[in-house]
């Protein structure tokens, strides 16, 4: 406790995102019907980066949405009220192949909330989950489809994804 351990640096994050963007294109046999949806806030920035990388590979800019899961959380009356931010979904999700992007996969509860939110915007053909770090301790039957890095952590630790877009240097640390 109290110690910071760097598990990924700028280059590492870059390589992972490059790999995941190729995997997305490969698994979906191209990007027709593929849309990216980032979970605020970390997932939103990662989704933006994936959008750029996929454009470099396929030459098409795939649609990007942002979802704020605050209103779908299951712990609202147990904590201080979280600050609500905007959800932006400028397209219908009907029959789309949705790549949901998050920075850290932990209990699976945020993913559950995000999926509930997505269902309010249409009926996607499928939803796939991409995460930068899978830290274990999943509590729901949900698994990511694209994993940047697996890390074993304890409940006391926290995994922080720091990104340039948030005003930090790109890195992932375990605290």
């Amino acid at each position: 406790m109290g110690n910071k351990k760097k598990i990924l640096d700028r280059l590492g994050i870059g390589r992972i995102l490059t790999r995941i963007s190729h995997e997305i294109v490969e698994r979906n046999k191209g990007v027709e019907k593929v849309v990216l949806v980032g979970i605020r806030t970390g997932g939103m920035y990662l989704a933006q980066r994936l959008q750029k990388m996929i454009k470099d590979i396929e030459g098409t800019e795939i649609p990007l949405g942002v979802v704020d899961i605050t209103l779908y959380r299951d712990d609202l009356s147990r904590k201080a009220v979280p600050r609500l931010r905007e959800t932006t979904m400028p397209f219908s999700l009907d029959d789309k192949r949705v790549i949901l992007v998050d920075d850290v996969f932990y209990t699976g509860r945020s993913t559950r909330a995000a999926m509930d939110a997505l269902m309010d915007f249409g009926r996607p053909e499928c939803i796939q989950l991409a995460v930068l770090v899978d830290r274990g301790h999943q509590e729901l039957p949900i698994r990511p489809d694209y994993v940047g890095m697996n890390v074993s952590t304890s409940y006391q630790e926290s995994v922080e994804v720091m990104l340039e877009e948030k005003g930090d240097e790109d890195q992932v640390v375990v605290i």
Partner: peptide
């Protein structure tokens, strides 16, 4: 409504 309904024990 949202602000008043949330927040059981504030930490």
């Amino acid at each position: 409504l949202y602000l008043l309904a949330g927040g059981g024990d504030l930490d």
